[in-house]
């Protein structure tokens, strides 16, 4: 029996020598075996019907490297074999903005000044959210080969889709910065720091939905299709194309204004617009009444809003993980 010809004391195990690890020959087999076993790799792994939330969070934390590889793979593969490559990730929002600009500025004659910047700030946030949630929802199903054959924390798949969306988000953000600089439009510098809590709130909320929907989609493939429809309506529920005050005003008259900001995406969008677009109100030509494009609150108002979303999103993320953990045991069979 192989076990009998080697005796590893705990002391030896805890002090592996780097030198021994570098050569592998039959003669040094016993030494190298000791060297490979670093103390951290000796932790005990449990596989049972239930997994605790703490264990799950730890697993995800330990899979950071894996997630970064999955993100890199996704980014590399997405536009592989296409001539324009990464340009496609810019062309998509460019087209969206062009279409809305033509429809609302030229056809409907919206009076919002610097309309492109207003649109861009909203679309930037929305694209991150919608593309991440859409691709994450089908991530487990489209990677069924992996889920069925390889053991790794499955939450990593939807979460790394959020990471991939963040990469494309940053490309688009650079374009936005270039556009701002080119036109000489100044953002509201004193509101810029709010982008950090807003962005955090957005990715936690997106990740929460990604984890939840990806697991449900394994059992109910309708989820993916349903989501596409819901996203269309959701887009119009957020002030991206029209000014904040037009929807808020209508809802407030019925005392429902609070509902508008209950949508976790809306506070993030208005924060981005407040910092990047920065025109809170304007007087349309030929009119004397002021139109409010953005909420009039100060920095603290926005901060409270974003931290509220962040807190709610963290709770939702934990609930999503619990639900995911409950049903992931059968993923390999269901796929």
């Amino acid at each position: 029996m192989p076990a009998t010809d080697m005796t590893i004391t705990d002391q030896e195990r805890e002090h592996p020598t780097q030198q021994a690890a570098s050569e592998v020959t039959a003669d040094t087999a016993v030494d190298t075996a000791i060297a490979y076993r670093s103390p951290t790799s000796q932790q005990v792994k449990h596989v049972s019907a239930r997994i605790s939330l703490r264990a799950k969070l730890l697993e995800i934390w330990h899979s950071r490297e894996l997630m970064s590889f999955l993100v890199r793979t996704e980014v590399k593969v997405k536009y592989k074999n296409s001539i324009l490559g990464f340009l496609w990730s810019m062309l998509n929002p460019a087209m969206t903005i062009a279409v809305y600009f033509i429809v609302f500025k030229i056809i409907v004659r919206s009076t919002v000044p610097r309309f492109v910047i207003y649109l861009f700030a909203g679309v930037l946030v929305w694209n991150l959210f919608s593309s991440a949630v859409t691709s994450a929802t089908s991530s487990l199903v489209s990677n069924s080969g992996l889920v069925k054959k390889v053991s790794f924390p499955r939450e990593v798949l939807p979460i790394s889709e959020v990471g991939t969306a963040c990469v494309f988000f940053s490309f688009q953000a650079i374009v936005l910065a270039i556009v701002l600089a080119a036109f000489g439009y100044a953002p509201a510098w004193n509101y810029m720091w709010l982008l950090i809590p807003a962005f955090l709130a957005l990715i936690v909320f997106t990740a929460a939905l990604a984890v939840l929907l990806s697991s449900i989609n394994v059992y109910l493939r309708d989820t993916h299709h349903l989501l596409e429809i819901v996203l269309i309506a959701w887009f119009w529920g957020v002030p991206i194309v029209y000014p904040y005050s037009s929807a808020m005003g209508a809802l407030s008259r019925h005392g429902l204004g609070f509902l508008y900001l209950m949508d976790p995406v809306a506070p993030v969008v208005v924060t981005f617009q407040r910092a990047i677009y920065a025109i809170v109100s304007y007087i349309p030509p030929g009119s004397t009444t002021r139109v409010f494009t953005l909420p009039t609150g100060g920095q603290m108002w926005f901060l409270k809003l974003d931290l509220g979303v962040l807190a709610g999103s963290i709770a939702l993320f934990l609930i999503s993980l619990i639900i995911f953990g409950r049903i992931e045991g059968n993923f390999a069979e269901e796929l």
């Binding site: 076993r37 790799s41 000796q42 932790q43 005990v44 792994k45 449990h46 596989v47 049972s48 019907a49 080969g145 992996l146 069925k148 054959k149 390889v150 053991s151 992931e328 045991g329 059968n330 390999a332 069979e333």
Partner: peptide, 24 residues
């Protein structure tokens, strides 16, 4: 890869499996 319906498995150390080669 599969979660048991009941009972548990305890494993100590780094695990590697040759279930399906090149699955990932």
């Amino acid at each position: 890869i599969l979660r048991p319906t009941s009972g548990e498995v305890l494993l100590r150390g780094q695990i590697s499996s040759l279930l399906e080669l090149g699955a990932g």
